[in-house]
Amino acid sequence: MLVFDADDTLWENNVVFERVIDDFLEWVAHPTLDRMQLRAVLDDIERANAVTHGYGSKVFLRSLRECLERLRQRPATEAERHEIDDLAVALVTHQVELMPGVADALDQLAGRHELLLLTKGEREEQQRKLDACGLLHHFKTAYIVPEKNVETYREVVREQAVDPARAWMIGNSPRSDILPARAAGWNAVFIPNDNTWVLEHDQLDAADAGVLHLSAFPDLLRHF
């Protein structure tokens, strides 16, 4: 059983958020903090909001507003809230852009293996991307979950009645795709993405034989 992450594995996602963050940091400016320090403030706010409110564009906008208010030490004005909304229009209008080789690789893999999809985030937003991607026919089941943790992976194999040792999680996020899958007894395939969200970074054990490291999605065809 091959289980695929969606955002930044099947299609580009976080690069759009990064563009908005760049525009936000340029707009907000600060008399004493540089861009790296401003980004650290935003990262802390996003980390806290992810725990409390989850993921997605709405939570991201909330984090931008809270960051502005923390930096300005006052509530955001109506004009400032509108400015942030305008900066983030790209999040709503962005079209799903598949990673190179994804469509052809899935066509071949679907003929050899049972494929599932496992993505986290706000359900309506993730479903919109799934409906637009043109790939859903390849997957037996598509899971949209609020968080990917060890219990999430255990629940998937229970529902699918599969031995965890025969399951492979394929994704770009050490924190959400690789480490919890391994802790649940799965194998994993790590396909790095230069635009992976900073909060999804984590250290992987280079000696872990249960993690296959690939450089690009089509490389899966040499192994599965």
Rank of each mutant, 00 (worst) to 15 (best):
N14C: 05
N172W: 05
A142C: 06
D8T: 10
P192V: 02
K120G: 02
E83H: 15
A50C: 07
N195Q: 11
P192I: 00
L220V: 08
M99E: 04
W168V: 01
L221T: 00
R175C: 01
R81G: 04
V157H: 08
V92F: 08
D86C: 07
A183I: 10
G111P: 14
L130T: 12
P174E: 10
A183W: 11
W197V: 10
R222A: 15
I178F: 10
D205W: 08
M1N: 00
H137A: 09
D86S: 09
R39C: 03
A29Q: 14
F17I: 05
D7A: 01
I170Y: 01
L204N: 06
Q108L: 14
E122A: 10
D86E: 12
L42T: 09
D104A: 15
A209V: 03
R39V: 04
D194E: 15
V145Q: 02
A181H: 04
L115E: 11
V157T: 00
N14M: 12
H223I: 11
Q160T: 03
K129A: 04
L136C: 06
V162L: 14
D194W: 05
E122W: 14
V198S: 11
F24R: 03
L91Q: 09
A105S: 11
V20Y: 06
S215K: 09
L2S: 00
L130P: 12
Q73E: 12
Y55H: 06
P146V: 10
G210F: 12
C67Q: 07
M36P: 03
V162N: 07
H138Y: 05
D5L: 03
V89E: 14
R47H: 12
T52D: 13
S57M: 07
L25P: 04
L87W: 07
A206C: 05
V150P: 04
L42H: 13
L42I: 02
N13V: 01
P174D: 07
L10E: 00
E18V: 06
K148I: 08
R128T: 11
V59Y: 04
L38G: 02
K140V: 10
A216I: 15
W11F: 09
Q95P: 07
N172V: 00
E122P: 10
F4K: 07
P164C: 02
A167R: 02
R47A: 13
R81C: 10
V20E: 10
A206D: 15
E83S: 15
L115S: 06
E83W: 15
Y143A: 06
P218N: 03
G185P: 00
V41R: 01
F224W: 11
A183D: 15
A161S: 14
D85I: 06
V15F: 12
C133L: 02
A181R: 05
S63C: 13
S215E: 15
R62A: 06
I84Q: 01
A184T: 03
K140M: 10
E114T: 09
E159G: 12
S57L: 10
D104E: 15
